[in-house]
Design a protein around this nucleic acid. Sequence first.
RNA 1: GGCGGCGUGGCCGAGUGGUUUAGGCAGGGGCCUGCAAAGCCCCGUACCCGGGUUCGAUUCCCGGCGCCGCCUCCA
Length: 463
Amino acid sequence: MLRLHDTASGSLRLLELRDPGRVAMYVCGPTVYDVPHIGHGRFAVAFDVLRRYLEFSGLDVEYVSNVTDIDDKIINRANVEGRPASEVAAEYEAAWWEAVDALGVARPTHSPHATAYVKRMVEMIAQLVARGAAYETSDGVYLSVEQVEGYGLLKRQSLESLRPGERVALLEEKRSSLDFVLWKKAKPDEPTWDSPWGPGRPGWHTECVVMSLDLLGEGFDVHGGGIDLAFPHHENERAQAVALGREFARHWAHCGHLKVGREKMSKSLGNFVTLSDLLARTDGRAYRLLLLQSNYRSPVEVTPGTIGDAEEALARLDSLGRRFALEADLAGVSLEAAKAAGADPDALEAFVEHMDDDLDTPAAIAGVFDLVRRANALADGGDEVSARELGVTVAVLCGAMGLVLRSDEEEVDHDAAALVAERDAARAAGDWARADAIRAELQEAGWVVEDGSEGTRLRRRPG
RNA sequence: GGCGGCGUGGCCGAGUGGUUUAGGCAGGGGCCUGCAAAGCCCCGUACCCGGGUUCGAUUCCCGGCGCCGCCUCCA
């Protein structure tokens, strides 16, 4: 069984499920106020890998990931652009799904929207007020963190050592500087919902508590997100659940950030790259492979260089996929099905061992490349049957991490196809000068030219 | 100021108290090929600095130096 790092305990913990055979996981999704950047892609891929591995293991996974479609940033953008916040949210939500689809991220089982849950959020806030855990101020309703036992668990730091106001101005009316807003009273030009405290809208930390408990129930298995969400966002979610006396997530998983150059990537630093930028110039699978080559909790350096390396590595995997014509379906099989399909038992066992160790995808990928080498060597030696078994294993293991290999030849345009035909004719006639000239022309056009037994074959040069 | 993390061969990035070793990319040599490409074989002997523990440390401890992140709505 999987041992997964748990932020609350700061250690690896066996993932013990609430319901045997079923995993209930919740991952904080995007606030849709702008196009997604590559950092969003990382968390989406990281938890997609977790999900796929659990499914590969034969577990039934219910994966909930929300869309925050009401928020200050959305409202600001809407006001600046002179259109409704709902329209802004809809536009960027569409961009979100387009991007994660391109990354090969499986859609969540449910993707609840904050705006659809406002009524329930109001009910929950009212309960918190009734229990004396929340109080009203002139601008909203706040949760009193001093009422919450163990507040700061996910931060793993004493509250006294925090520096409130270090980055954000404090509000005088708050009882504690750490108290956070549950309900924001309406300001001009904002979308509003009714509440016992007047028109307004919910605070960010409230939606995930309500939606996760509603869709997954108390004591769901895993709650995940980017490491920056551990505190305060997840801490504050937890605080609300604790204040309500409800059991919340059993396990907290957080993925690391990206480095672009030496620094953290963030919009405020202006060094972010959008996913659409990335996907326009490279295969989303190359990005996934780059991420898989380091642990999900480690920082990953994303530069043209590291992306280029990953593209080359992916090309190696794709070459294998084509060599053995490995069906794309192999990417979706479970461990049991893989055994039945003749995948290499030792390799499967090693894979499970690595992945069970806090999703050690770097080791798993290393194992995959070892299989690639062995498969090619066997095939070179003429043992096609054994070779293909290892090839199948590669496809299965890559698939368990969400990486689907190319098995088909690439689409070749008419011009290139004509050149291929001409080159084959030239080669048949022994006209090497002509054959080489055509090859140069094809390479110029971005093709990698390979001469096989069936003649000239083309594939796109990565990058 | 507090808390946490990191510093590995040309680059990225795992890992480990000592034996044969991550892996990818790049590079060199060879096989294959008309020549290539792809593939295969071989090749680098790395672990910030200074102490300490130890028979032995890149790995453990202490102290530096450097870098990074978090400390109220950034994945």
